[in-house]
Design a binder for these strands. Sequence first.
DNA 1: TGGTGATCATAC
DNA 2: GTATGATCACCA
Length: 227
Amino acid sequence: MKVYPPASENELLNNAKTIAGKTLQQIATIHELPIPLHLRNAKGWIGELIEISLGASATSLPEPDFQKIGVELKTIPVNRHGRPKESTYVCTVPLTPDIDIQWETSLVKRKLSRVLWVPVEADAGIPLPARRVGTAFLWSPDRQQVSVLRQDWEEFMDMIMMGELEQITARHGQYLQIRPKATNAEALRNGINMDGDKILTMPRGFYLRASFTSRIIEQMISQFHQQ
DNA sequence: TGGTGATCATAC
DNA sequence: GTATGATCACCA
């Protein structure tokens, strides 16, 4: 079954409702896809399955997944309490950014402006085929959240432009963090050191801390209960 | 045992 | 090679 890109947020939400409560086995069967034995050698499999089942179009482009409506798709592994098990990858970190790079036009901002979060059961005790997809919800950061995300991003970009990339660890950043994002430790690319010289360094990605995505889920639940 | 640093697969 | 989809694995 082929799912076409949704033309509106409502259409996307309706598509998401059709997979809510289903197991990964049920969804994979609909699309005639095999299920890997475990995620160790297929880490992105759930994300790719949900992309297919919701009609995502920019699946390996530096763009929001649903290009037409500007929505980014994120599956989020949650435990039985609904708390995220992992951080959430956002996008690649520019290692040699232009001097005039700005938050307003950054990929982090574009991707996080509108996100469809799709919770997926991730307790180790549940076999992969039996894991269920939860109720998806659309989210945009509120003013306070945008403010912190922007502050994190600007501090990171300042450090990178100052040649302090190698000093950045996953401990930096309140909501965002920067961590390696590579095939392996041998995958290097160009960066800039504190002397302004070219160096080879590990490719890195922006991630949302699990403590932050946990708050997003809690907010959604409390809004739900108020209605 | 939580979080940081490392890694796996795939598309083009 | 560089982007995407992420989770793994180890150690403080």
